[in-house]
Each structure stands twice: as C-alpha cells, then as structure tokens.
Amino acid sequence: MITDFKSLGIIFGLIAWCVMIALLLTSFYKDKLNMTYSKWRLLHIVLSVVFISTALWHVIDLGRHMNEIMILFIFLLVCISVYQLGKLYFSKNYKKEKVL
C-alpha cells in the first residue's frame, strides 16, 4: 500500500475529495433534488466551507514545501475566500439570479 491512514492529513484529503464529489453531483443534479433554491445554495455554502477546511488541513499537514510563512499565506487566502463567500451570499444586497 502506498500510504496508511495513520496521518490525519490523509484522512482529511479523502474527506475533501468526497465533499468535492458531493459538490459536483449536487451541481449537476440540482433540478432533480427535492429542495428549494435557497436550501440548495445553503448546502453548497456549507459543503464549500467543509471542502476548503479539510483541503487546507491536508495541504498543511502533508505539504512537502510547507514552512510557517507559506502556511500563514495559505491560511490567510482561505480566510479571505470564506469571508468573501459569506459576504456575497449573506449580504442584504444579494439578488437571486433567475434559474433557467
């Protein structure tokens, strides 16, 4: 076997892959799911944050070229991304686009 599951980085990497596949499937089959647009959008927000968090843990834990400055840089980028996602979806000025 190439790797073992003793490292949390491996486990979080596998979780990130599963969540990414869930994001893909719920995007392609959103019309066939029995949920409103706002519930589907909330599901995507939650899945995106889970994906970003688990992928970040995986990269930091298993990254070959990770040092303190790079970890801080990646963490800062993720925080900015999550903030922008929240700002976009939870602002009062956000208008739903019409779904075809």
Score class of each variant (00 low, 15 high):
residue 55 A to P: 01
residue 30 K to E: 12
residue 61 D to F: 08
residue 48 S to L: 09
residue 69 I to A: 07
residue 34 N to E: 13
residue 32 K to L: 04
residue 20 M to A: 08
residue 30 K to M: 10
residue 81 S to A: 10
residue 94 Y to I: 07
residue 57 W to G: 07
residue 50 V to Y: 13
residue 69 I to G: 00
residue 39 K to G: 04
residue 7 S to Q: 12
residue 44 H to T: 10
residue 20 M to W: 01
residue 20 M to Q: 13
residue 32 K to I: 03
residue 69 I to F: 04
residue 29 Y to V: 01
residue 39 K to V: 10
residue 52 I to S: 02
residue 95 K to D: 07
residue 36 T to K: 12
residue 61 D to W: 01
residue 45 I to N: 09
residue 52 I to G: 00
residue 1 M to D: 11
residue 55 A to L: 11
residue 23 L to E: 00
residue 18 C to Q: 04
residue 62 L to C: 13
residue 11 I to M: 13
residue 83 Y to W: 14
residue 10 I to D: 05
residue 58 H to A: 09
residue 37 Y to I: 13
residue 23 L to K: 09
residue 97 E to Q: 11
residue 98 K to G: 08
residue 94 Y to G: 02
residue 9 G to P: 03
residue 63 G to S: 10
residue 38 S to Q: 15
residue 18 C to S: 12
residue 30 K to W: 15
residue 26 T to S: 08
residue 33 L to D: 14
residue 50 V to P: 05
residue 96 K to L: 14
residue 37 Y to G: 04
residue 74 I to A: 03
residue 2 I to G: 08
residue 2 I to D: 14
residue 26 T to Q: 04
residue 91 S to L: 09
residue 99 V to N: 11
residue 2 I to R: 14
residue 81 S to E: 02
residue 65 H to E: 09
residue 7 S to C: 11
residue 47 L to I: 08
residue 78 V to Q: 00
residue 67 N to D: 15
residue 37 Y to P: 00
residue 84 Q to S: 05
residue 62 L to Y: 06
residue 79 C to H: 05
residue 20 M to T: 01
residue 89 Y to I: 02
residue 35 M to W: 03
residue 24 L to N: 03
residue 50 V to E: 09
residue 18 C to M: 08
residue 60 I to H: 06
residue 29 Y to C: 00
residue 68 E to L: 01
residue 81 S to L: 10
residue 24 L to T: 03
residue 85 L to H: 11
residue 86 G to W: 02
residue 69 I to E: 05
residue 93 N to D: 14
residue 45 I to G: 08
residue 57 W to T: 06
residue 95 K to R: 15
residue 10 I to Y: 07
residue 60 I to A: 11
residue 44 H to F: 06
residue 33 L to S: 14
residue 48 S to A: 08
residue 6 K to V: 03
residue 77 L to V: 06
residue 54 T to F: 13
residue 3 T to Y: 02
residue 42 L to P: 05
residue 90 F to D: 14
residue 97 E to F: 05
residue 5 F to D: 15
residue 74 I to E: 05
residue 72 L to F: 08
residue 23 L to N: 04
